[in-house]
Design a binder for these strands. Sequence first.
DNA 1: GTCCCGGAGA
DNA 2: TCTCCGGGAC
Length: 333
Amino acid sequence: MWVRSDLDSRGRADSIKRLRPNSPVMTEASGDDFLPDDADRVRAALIEWYEDDHREYPWRETTDPYPILVSEVMSQQTQLDRVVDAWADFLDRWPTVEDLAAADRADVVGFWTDHSLGYNNRAKYLHEAAREVRGEHGGQFPRDPDGLQELMGVGPYTANAVASFAFDNGDAVVDTNVRRVLYRAFGVPDEDGEFERVAGQLMPDGESRVWNNAIMELGGVACTKTPACDGAACPWRKWCDAYETGDFTAPDVPTQPEFEGSRRQFRGRVISVLGDADELPLDDLGPRVRVDYVPDGDGEGGREWLRALVSDLEADGLVELDTRDGDAVVRLQ
DNA sequence: GTCCCGGAGA
DNA sequence: TCTCCGGGAC
């Protein structure tokens, strides 16, 4: 059974908010929060899932902060595929932070341009950061997020990432992937510093390296904009609000496109989904067609909305809607 | 994601 | 003055 099937995530968010302001009985450790009661199982499940299998990137094989910083800066603007080559070339040319600090700015910017790494301001920042490490830190990177964040071009995100991956000494990383995961799984509201607060509470103490890798991997391969819960064997399915309700809305998932275009788009998606799943119940098809599918919803994105869409496709001779045994099953015609 | 700038409020 | 926040640029 669902541990929290009686709770509505938004209603819960509201009640939490009323309790929170400076309530003396509310402490970080009070446990009254968005997380399930068995949060330790949630943590263990994710780490196990990550360690069992994950994408491999060369910068995950080092704990040297310099190459890690380079990878983070590059990743902020470029698809990971392109970063892999550029990263290797960059380190080939400037193997250490001292080498980079000694380089001419124009060469670093030139490298950025030659490798199509986007806004060359980043190259400037990276070069400047290297000089700060040399000049203000004796050639050694700061080992904590606050120290790292003082480096040019290093904000809260990158500071935590480097502190985590290099020194296993970071706080919970909060990027759009993590926000999406927390919003969907536990109904964490998109307001104030709620993501940061809950993310920090969820992260196991002193395990920032594996944890931040794992939760970002989750958002990167399973809890994607169009979710792949089953395909990626998401370890949080039994705790996940969105998996339970079928509502995969998220802060970074664009809301409905123009009505006319959307209908055409959804028709196409139905066909595409059915293409690699021979037949699907209506409610399984729904979430794959639109992330904000809610079976019980009565308007756009509800079961009846989907049934109507499928009926049109059936009339066009594209799909088959089989309602013989109680629930409707859709397949390609 | 980070920086910078301009406006609002203390 | 100084800090916080939104908005835009890179």
